[in-house]
């Protein structure tokens, strides 16, 4: 059975408050904060992208384990904002992390669940014996069009999950639920994505998240109270909170994995950065339900149990999620649009 051997996340230090964005567009920030439940979001620096964020997340994962890097047989990166349209992020990471060249690598895309799709592939390769260990990364530097509701949420961050045998958190099961649902998209060559407004709720997010979670609990014969932690894809703070309530989870089970109110929606890292925050504190015996959602649309669901090997996990070797959340550099809207390439520069 495959398991999590190590994990690591990276959140850019730059942050912008909801008030800063709202004042430029004549919106009432209190309406945004109460409506979307987002207070601030992370912003990548002008020299950061999915490759640099993935590298830092992966280095944090590697710091927490003494695993010989030559034993990593696959690296997959899920994102919707890869630096190149053609040229894999994953191959650059092989060199940047000093991994063996005898490695499977590829970039994945499925809106916000590309990182968890990568996890499922690595799990299958470990379970089949094709590789001993593999790394799955979900990272994004997503954009929202100026003035669009997405501008309050689209943020940046990444999480790397190192999967192998004899890790500290066992995967009890995983499943996916997929339909053709046009809730959110970005055409090739377009800078900003489009979305279906309210259509992104019921037929997209809630249908796939709730169905996926229910199917997993049916499969495993579990109820919400059997889980110590539940983490849901978090495009804003409101959707996962409501989904949890509809499924019967309480605030205690959800709060540690809910980060969007402080760092925004990190897209391909959204659910797994919540998982990373939970793994920062989970103890042996804790059972975790993770539900990722990707527009287009589908959900990837994971049922995990932390085992005794967590006691020898070297968490302190890398910065935890909350340590990074609580280390911001606040910027104003002008700096934000400059860093995000939203103003036209000479020679651009």
């Amino acid at each position: 059975m495959s398991s999590i051997v190590s994990y690591g996340s990276y959140i850019p230090r730059f942050r912008i408050r909801t008030e800063e964005i709202a004042k430029e567009w004549g919106e009432n920030p209190e309406n945004i904060k109460s409506g979307l439940f987002i207070h601030s979001k992370s912003v990548p620096g002008p020299d950061e992208d999915v490759l640099t964020i993935s590298a830092e997340a992966a280095k944090n994962a590697l710091r927490r384990t003494d695993l010989d890097k030559s034993k990593i047989g696959a690296i997959y990166v899920g994102s919707e904002s890869h630096p190149y349209a053609v040229k894999p992020t994953s191959s650059i990471l092989v060199e940047a992390l000093g991994l063996t060249y005898d490695i499977h690598s590829a970039d994945y895309e499925f809106a916000c669940k590309a990182g968890t799709a990568a996890m499922q592939n690595v799990m299958a390769m470990v379970d089949s014996g094709q590789i001993e260990n593999g790394m799955a990364i979900g990272a994004d530097t997503s954009q929202g069009a100026p003035g669009d509701a997405l501008e309050y949420s689209a943020s940046a961050g990444g999480t790397a999950i190192l999967i192998g045998k004899n890790g500290f958190a066992d995967f009890n099961a995983t499943l996916s639920f997929t339909t053709d649902t046009p809730d959110f998209w970005r055409r090739e060559g377009e800078k900003y994505p489009s979305h279906g407004g309210r259509f992104t709720g019921e037929p997209a997010y809630f249908k796939h998240v709730l169905t996926g979670a229910k199917k997993m609990m049916d499969k495993m014969g579990t109820k919400p109270e059997d889980y110590d932690y539940a983490i849901f894809h978090q495009p804003n703070g409101k959707f996962p909170t409501r989904a949890a309530k509809m499924l019967g989870f309480n605030d205690e089970q959800v709060k540690d994995g809910l980060l969007t109110p402080y760092i925004g929606n990190t897209y391909s890292s959204s659910m797994i950065i919540g998982l990373s925050a939970v793994l920062d504190k989970a103890e042996s015996g804790d059972r975790i339900l993770g539900v990722a959602f990707g527009s287009g649309a589908g959900s990837d669901v994971f049922d995990m149990t932390v085992n005794d090997r967590v006691k020898s996990l070297k968490r302190e070797r890398a910065k935890g999620v909350m340590e990074q959340v609580n280390n911001p550099i606040w910027i104003d809207y002008a700096t934000y649009v400059k860093y995000r390439g939203k103003i036209i520069m000479r020679g651009a």
């Binding site: 620096g45 020299d47 950061e48 992208d49 640099t52 590298a55 940047a96």
Partner: peptide
Amino acid sequence: TLRKVRSEGKAGIIQY
């Protein structure tokens, strides 16, 4: 830390 150092325009290679 690994960062973008420069790029050869919008179409060129990104140097990290």
